[in-house]
Nucleic acid binder design. Sequence first.
RNA 1: GGAAGGAUGGCUGAGCGGUUGAAAGCACCGGUCUUGAAAACCGGCAAAGGGGCAACUCUUUCCUGGGUUCGAAUCCCAGUCCUUCCGCCA
Length: 419
Amino acid sequence: MHNIKDIRNNPNFFKDTLKKRFLEIDLKKILELDENNRKLIQEKENLEKEKKEISKSKNKELFEKSKSISKKIGELENKQKETKVKLENILSSIPNLPMDDVPIGKDENSNLEISKSGSVPKFDFKPKSHYELGENLNMLDFDLATKTTGSRFVFVKDKLALLERAVSNFMIDTHVNQNGYQEISPPLIASDSTMYGTGQLPKFENDQFEIKFDDKNDRKFLIPTAEVILTNMGRDKIFQLNELPLRVVASTPCFRKEAGSYGKDTKGMIRQHQFYKVELVSIVEPEKCLDELDRMTGCATKILDLLKLPYKKIVLSSGDMGFSAEKTFDIEVWLPSENKYREISSCSSCGSFQARRMKSRYKNKKNEISFVGTLNGSGLAVGRTLIAILENYQQSDGSIIIPDVLKPYMSNLDKITKK
RNA sequence: GGAAGGAUGGCUGAGCGGUUGAAAGCACCGGUCUUGAAAACCGGCAAAGGGGCAACUCUUUCCUGGGUUCGAAUCCCAGUCCUUCCGCCA
């Protein structure tokens, strides 16, 4: 959510910066609603003042007048509320502004590669895809999931289930013991106001799984990412300066409808309705956002370094960034079967955009209360890490070597083979 | 699911129809004292929104939404959440 004052003071900057996202906003309408809103507030306040004075005077002759003023105030208030709701509906659907150094472009084709790391494995045979490998091992079962649930789900079995657990635990341990994050095991269900806070609502309702909770009219959703619930830990809260930065990590299932991605990655477990992800969230002083973004991205790439998986780091273009982000680094891991890099992590700084929606604030050095900065990043997507390990560590016989750092998590097993 | 109690500023907590935006304490900020710090003492300290170049000023806000009243933190109704007890349950 943007501050209407910023828009009012610098409408053209606003309009131009949003053009970087290839978005045209009806600025005239916004300013008009804003002006109208303020006019109504003023009228209302004048009447309120008058009413207050009458009541203070305790002058019985004026009591009738006070009654009629109350009526007028009520009318103005309704009008003003209506205007404000209209204004907020528009504002809440406007995405964050990209930072100056974000490359401008419509989509992923304009993303910019920053660095490459690790060496791409060479095979003297044709590398198989993760789903061929998994199905041959009898440890990935898509058909079974289709039977029990539907498409875009999977059963992970036996040693691959163990591997999945190992990956998740290894990541959390690394972030907790080496990167200074606090481990959290959060609820997997979020209320509508929580979903609004991080920007999933109102605009992306169709991507979310809403659940039937009870007969009452509050709404609940399965979290599409732990970012939602972790970032909202600071909702309606004023942090003391010494509580920041707050860094938390959680490994949770994530649920997404993947609406609008029909036909994309239909095979395998690249794109599922449910997947595990280790999520990093930082709440910081807003001016420290970009430093924290670099730090967070470093925490994510460290995992790939330790797993010895080749990857590249890219900065997303203005058109490819998520709704709440001001700057995003994606990390892509090498997938031999596709002969290309695929997204395995996305680290974003949201500046104060989410904080403003959530009323997440802190007391700064001058003792003033202002909005915090929020960041989130995957560290990493567990399912996709599993894929990357399968494909990069595969052997000609279809077995999978276990990366050294994971062995302690798997009773020192060093290879997964078919039974 | 049943029964009772509660929700007040960054936090704890008084107030229960009329200068109460709200006592007190803690925290925080400034000062005196001190070589420095601590302690002690003195002073300051809510947020949101509107107007103004500014000094400043106005309005709103005591969980939310309605109602009673000239006037509500205070009374009435509905809802949300929390706590305790009972029941049920992983």
